[in-house]
Simulated assay, not measured.
Amino acid sequence: MTAAPLLWPEITVLERGWLSANNYLFQASGPDSAAALVDTGYCLHAEQTVALVQDSLGALPLARILNTHLHSDHCGGNAALQAAYPDVQTWIPPGEAAAVRVWDEERLSYRPTGQDCPRFRVEGLLQAGTEVMLGSRPWQVHAAPGHDPHSVILFEPERRLLISADALWEHGFGVVFPEIEGIHAFAEVGATLDIIEALQPAVVLPGHGALFTDVAAALTEARRKLTGFVADPRKHARYAAKVLLKYKLLEWQQIAAADALRWMLATPYFRTLHTRYFAADTPTAWAQSLVHELERSGAAAVQGGVLHNR
């Protein structure tokens, strides 16, 4: 985790790792200013998230939490922040408010991914086509389906700043989760990239990784990757499986290799990916191949029967 300096008078950038999405904290000067935080990281880092926000705000209250989407790495700190700031209002994209209110972990993806997210409440919706005040400036809300069907991105047109969530990183974009479930969404990824290009952002504040300004290069790389996934959906399926495993390994740091295999075989998205794309291999052989590929890439290591994060 690194805390970037105040790049603009109202924005504090809290650049996290890959387990927790970046957090963007907005403050405006004046007695009527209301602090807002965009995305809150993974639950494992919730205590750290609260500490970072409190250190930045001091005695000022946090008025709003905004989630670009409800994957566990973007909203896992919501509950802890709601406990620390009881009056905070939490706004999410439309489409999953009902699932949040009844806490349906299947629809919210936490059970299928084998990830955790403490239950939180919701008060408002980030409707596409509207604006939200962050600091003293209005930010446009744009629908950004693909990685997640309900995701939004936020754009400030005067300075041309884009909070892109997982729709665009400097070197790609997030796993296209609907594709795991057999729902065609590659076209939506492409359409969202077109929206970003049309907005012509000068600076992108991504869901993961450092801020970047060479948006044209990032879009070119993202489209190249998308073209490869469209041509060979199995390539995306294998990429998705390795990302899910690596993400959990970031949480575990180390685990008995046999326990990691058992976790994969018991986790719904791994079973779905195996059945849909890799049924020619036994489930165990396929799961073992994912571990071997992480080893070959340097992202993991097995030593003495223990799987280590690298």
Rank of each mutant, 00 (worst) to 15 (best):
F26Q: 05
A28T: 14
A28Y: 01
A28Q: 10
S29D: 09
S29M: 00
G30W: 10
D32Q: 12
D32R: 14
S33R: 09
A34F: 01
A35R: 05
D39K: 06
T40L: 02
Y42V: 11
Y42C: 07
C43T: 13
C43L: 07
C43H: 10
L44E: 12
H45P: 01
H45Q: 15
H45W: 10
H45A: 15
A46L: 06
T49N: 12
V50Y: 05
L52K: 11
V53F: 06
V53P: 03
V53A: 00
Q54I: 00
D55S: 07
D55M: 03
D55F: 00
A59L: 03
L60T: 02
R64C: 04
I65C: 06
L66S: 01
N67H: 13
N67V: 02
N67K: 01
N67A: 15
T68F: 12
H69I: 07
H69E: 12
L70E: 02
L70W: 05
H71W: 06
S72P: 10
S72I: 05
D73T: 13
D73H: 14
C75Q: 04
C75F: 00
G76C: 07
G77V: 12
G77N: 01
G77E: 05
G77R: 01
G77F: 03
N78Y: 04
N78S: 12
A79N: 02
A79C: 08
L81D: 10
Q82L: 03
A83V: 14
A84R: 08
A84Y: 01
Y85S: 06
Y85D: 00
P86Q: 09
D87P: 04
T90I: 04
T90P: 10
I92P: 00
I92W: 00
I92D: 00
P93M: 14
E96P: 00
E96F: 04
A97F: 00
A97P: 03
A98T: 04
A99E: 03
R101W: 13
V102D: 13
W103H: 02
E105I: 04
E105W: 02
E106Q: 15
R107G: 06
R107T: 09
L108K: 08
S109A: 10
R111H: 06
R111V: 14
R111N: 07
P112E: 09
T113Y: 13
C117A: 13
C117E: 07
C117L: 10
P118G: 09
P118C: 12
R119E: 14
R119I: 08
R119M: 13
F120K: 04
V122I: 13
G124N: 15
G124W: 09
Q127R: 13
A128N: 07
A128L: 10
A128P: 15
T130L: 11
E131K: 14
E131R: 11
E131F: 05
V132A: 03
V132I: 10
V132H: 02
M133E: 12
L134E: 11
L134R: 00
S136A: 15
S136V: 03
S136L: 08
R137P: 05
R137Q: 14
R137M: 07
P138Q: 14
P138Y: 04
W139P: 08
W139R: 07
Q140L: 11
V141D: 02
H142Y: 12
H142K: 10
A144R: 06
A144W: 06
P145H: 06
G146H: 14
H147W: 15
D148I: 01
D148E: 06
S151Q: 15
S151D: 12
V152F: 00
V152H: 03
V152G: 00
V152I: 15
I153C: 08
